[in-house]
Design a binder for these strands. Structure first.
Length: 435
RNA sequence: GGAGGGAUGACAGAGCGGCCGAAUGUACCGGUCUUGAAAACCGGCGUGGGCUUGCCCACCGUGGGUUCAAAUCCCACUCCCUCCGCCA
């Protein structure tokens, strides 16, 4: 949620910034009008309330003084005022709810550095990385044996079985098996261990309450994109960002503890409503995937460094796995609602010949913290909202696909990245399948 | 799933329906004293909102209700603790 006080103070600046991501100034004017109305009603209601309280006190005093006649008179007067107060409060709450609903629809103010643009076509490619680049080697070309889609490799080596997944849970629920399952496990363990030096590992619940989803902004906006367990009022988390953002919900953190850096690997559940049929083969887009998330609560001053650290770690994993990737600076039109600035990482997967998004590193400013009410106490004793930053390092389904396709050998086997060997009992290859 | 107990400020812990936003203790901050520290003493010390910046309003697990007036009474829910049952 954006800062209403800022909107009051500098309406033109806020409108100009939001116009960069397509929010009309009429929308903001409507919110400003609602705010004015709300505050007017609030004053009226609070004034009446103060009178009722005052009269009630007099009733008490009159009763103690045995002046029952005065007491009865005041009681009646207060009762009438109380009715008025109830109506005024009702009106205040109604307008307040309207104002809040409108405000929740407003996306975050984009960072100045975020490039202008309407949609993903306007994202700015910042750089690419590939194995050997630092030694002056050219962008790799890929041989025929690497031009095989992971779903075919998966079937050939018996390591990915989309059909069984579909049988169990419907399409787009992958089932990894054998060395494929082990590879997935190794990727997660490798990443979590790598982040251990600075990030506390968390294993949160995979479900969250409606209230929790609200505080992260996933509800009500993205209700259709999430799986719900209605009977228990729970939602399957679409990312570990949900539990991590809510861990300190409603708390005032000690400034000395910041930045608080957390990492978690969880399953991520996404209904992908509306995406049916598009880019859905194999692991390109699935309803459930594992992801290691990096997250930090920090002061505004620490935010930039924290964001950079997460990006660096995500890139570090891709480099360690020997994968080619590119770095995209998301334009204002493609930013997620809550984000002020986002850098995406896309890995190149030669078998399907496409760049696949495997990480999204975002800086939310105080947008998430305002809704989740996470603050910190500053040196002078005052409180301020924290900044939150997060990023994936990494989303494993697509990474798994890129690893398998990139490292496929002429004989059909997969050469495993060196860094994963400790997690695979020293194993160096998968397949070829013994016939 | 069953029975009982509980939820109040950073923590501990009081609170007859009526100057209770809340006693007291600890912690914390400032001061006096001291060479310094400790102790002692004095003062301060929740969060958010509104405006006419001094006042007003809200908040005692959550949501309803009763009342002129609710931390206090009633109802529902959530969570925690103890015991029983069940269980990977």
């Amino acid at each position: 949620m954006i800062d209403l006080a800022l909107l009051r103070r500098e309406p033109d600046a806020v409108k100009a910034a939001l116009a960069r991501r397509g929010v009309s100034s009429a929308t903001m004017d409507a919110i400003i009008a609602l705010d004015v109305e709300h505050r007017g009603l609030l004053q009226e209601a609070e004034g009446l309330r103060a009178e009722v309280k005052f009269l009630s006190r007099l009733v008490g005093e009159a009763r103690r003084g045995k002046d029952l006649e005065t007491a009865a008179l005041l009681t009646e007067k207060s009762r009438v005022l109380g009715d008025e107060e109830r109506q005024a409060t009702e009106a205040t709450e109604r307008v307040g709810a309207l104002l809040r609903d409108e405000l929740l629809q407003v996306p975050n103010i984009p960072a100045d550095e975020a490039p202008d643009g309407d949609d993903e076509k306007d994202n700015v490619e910042v750089r690419r990385w590939w194995v050997g680049m630092d030694d002056g080697l050219a962008l790799p070309t890929y041989a025929e044996h690497q031009r095989v889609a992971h779903w075919d490799i998966g079937t050939e080596l018996g390591i990915l079985d989309m059909e069984s997944g579909a049988k169990l849970a419907g399409s787009m629920f992958p089932l990894y098996r054998g060395d494929g399952a082990r590879l997935l496990r190794a990727l997660g363990s490798f990443a979590l261990d790598r982040h251990r030096d600075a990030y506390e590992e968390i294993r949160p619940p995979s479900f969250a309450l409606t209230e929790t989803m609200m505080s992260t902004g996933h509800l009500p906006k993205s209700a259709d994109d999430m799986y719900a367990i209605e009977r228990d009022g729970l939602w399957a988390i679409p990312t570990a960002e949900v539990p991590l953002t809510s861990m300190h919900r409603g708390e005032i953190l000690d400034e000395a503890r910041l930045p608080i850096r957390l990492t978690a690997q969880t399953a991520c559940f996404r209904r992908e409503a509306g995406a049916a049929g598009r880019d859905t083969r194999g692991l390109l887009r699935v309803h459930e995937f594992d992801k290691v998330e990096l997250f930090a609560y920090c002061t505004p001053e620490q935010a930039e460094a924290a964001h950079g650290d997460i990006l660096g770690r995500a890139e570090g994993i891709l480099q360690a796995l020997g994968l080619t990737y590119r770095v995209l600076d998301l334009c204002t039109g493609d930013l997620g609602t809550s984000s002020a600035r986002t850098i995406d990482l896309e890995v190149f997967s030669p078998g399907v010949d496409r760049w696949l998004e495997v990480s999204s590193v975002s800086w939310f400013r105080d947008f998430q913290a305002r809704r989740a009410n996470v603050r910190y106490r500053q040196g002078d004793g005052s409180t301020a909202l924290v900044h939150t930053v997060n990023g994936s390092a990494l989303a494993w389904a697509r990474t798994w696909a890129a690893v398998v396709e990139t490292h496929r050998q002429p004989d059909g086997s997969i050469r495993l990245p060196d860094v994963l060997r400790p997690y695979l009992g020293g194993q160096t290859t998968i397949g070829p399948k013994a016939s």
